[in-house]
Structures are given as C-alpha cells and as structure tokens.
C-alpha cells in the first residue's frame, strides 16, 4: 500500500508542483533507497532525474523501516520525527551525509506536498487505508491541474539534473 501511495504522491507532485518535483529528482539524482513499511518492501530510484519504483536496490544510499501508523502520526503532528526515531518507530541507516540528504529531500517533498491541492485528498485516502486507482487519480488531477504537462515536467527535471551534473 505504501508503495502505491508514494508513487501516487510523486505523480501528484509532478502534476501540481513540477518545480519541486524536479528539484527533488535533482537532489536525489541517480540514488536509490530501500524502504520497508509494515513489512512491505519498496525500492525507489531516481535514474536520469525521474522517480521510479524498482524491484531491486543494489546500492541504497538510505534504508528506512517504519509503519503506516508512524507515518500517519508524524504527518498528523502526533509525533515528531525525532520522537519517532528515538522510539525506534522510524529506523534509518545510512552515512551521516546521506541521512542529512534524506532529511533535506523529505522536507522538500513535504514543502511541495503542502502546496499541492490533491495531497490532503490523497493523505485522507491513505488514512482510510484506501488507495485510489490511477484513473481516479488522473481524474482528480484533471480537476486541480488541467494545464499540467507530464512530458514538460520530465524535460524540466532532466534539464535541471544535467545542468547540476555539469556544474559538479
């Protein structure tokens, strides 16, 4: 369930706040991570400046283990990120620089999320343990962001990524 929620949320971010989506993809360019939420194993990767769910992760820059309840507690303000880590409800492994990078990426993702009109709806679905279908999601985005352009978003993301790489 979390994999689909995460994938949908990145689709929402790309459609509703493409600049933030592009910056996030640049920030995590060519990195992959291993997540486990309620024993659901999820691989994510950002090849060529785009977000992908992947089956296998060879070199995760970060590993994360948590639960849906913890995710909802943190997002719902009932627990801080620090409290969740200290209580072992959010387990993270990675080099210090990568942990900092992951935190920066998480904050950027959430800064985008609070600016997207579809996020409250998607989060309510996740709270209700209901993941909307792709058709339902597209229908929602047609209402909130009829002028979106997915191809434009990906071009932008890749352009920014390449520019960043060129500048080291």
């Amino acid at each position: 369930m979390f994999a689909t929620f995460l994938d949908h949320s990145m689709t929402v971010l790309a459609a509703e706040k493409p600049a933030v989506h592009a910056r996030l993809c640049v920030l995590l360019y060519d990195r992959e991570a291993r997540l486990e939420v309620d024993h659901e194993h999820i691989g994510i990767a950002f090849p060529d400046g785009a977000f992908r769910l992947v089956d296998t992760v060879a070199h995760p820059f970060i590993e994360l283990r948590s639960s849906r309840a913890t995710v909802l507690d943190v997002v719902g303000g009932r627990s801080t990120l620090d409290d969740a880590v200290w209580a072992d409800r959010l387990w993270l492994r990675g080099h210090l620089d990568d942990l900092v990078l992951f935190h920066d990426a998480l904050v950027l993702y959430l800064q985008g999320a609070v600016r997207c009109p579809s996020f409250p709806w998607l989060l309510e679905c996740y709270q209700d343990a209901r993941i909307p279908s792709m058709a339902e999601l597209e229908n929602h985005l047609d209402r909130t962001s009829p002028n979106r352009s997915r191809s434009e978003i990906e071009r932008l993301a890749m352009a920014v990524a390449h520019k960043e790489r060129a500048h080291g």
């Binding site: 943190v74 997002v75 719902g76 303000g77 009932r78 801080t80 990120l81 620090d82 998480l106 904050v107 959430l110 800064q111 999320a113 609070v114």
Partner: peptide
C-alpha cells in the same frame, strides 16, 4: 501547536 500538522516535520 502547529497547523497543518505536517509542519511539525517541515518547521519543527
């Protein structure tokens, strides 16, 4: 106390 609640992560 913060609203929206997710601001506890963004702006702790």
């Amino acid at each position: 106390y913060k609203l929206p609640h997710v601001m506890n992560v963004i702006s702790p």
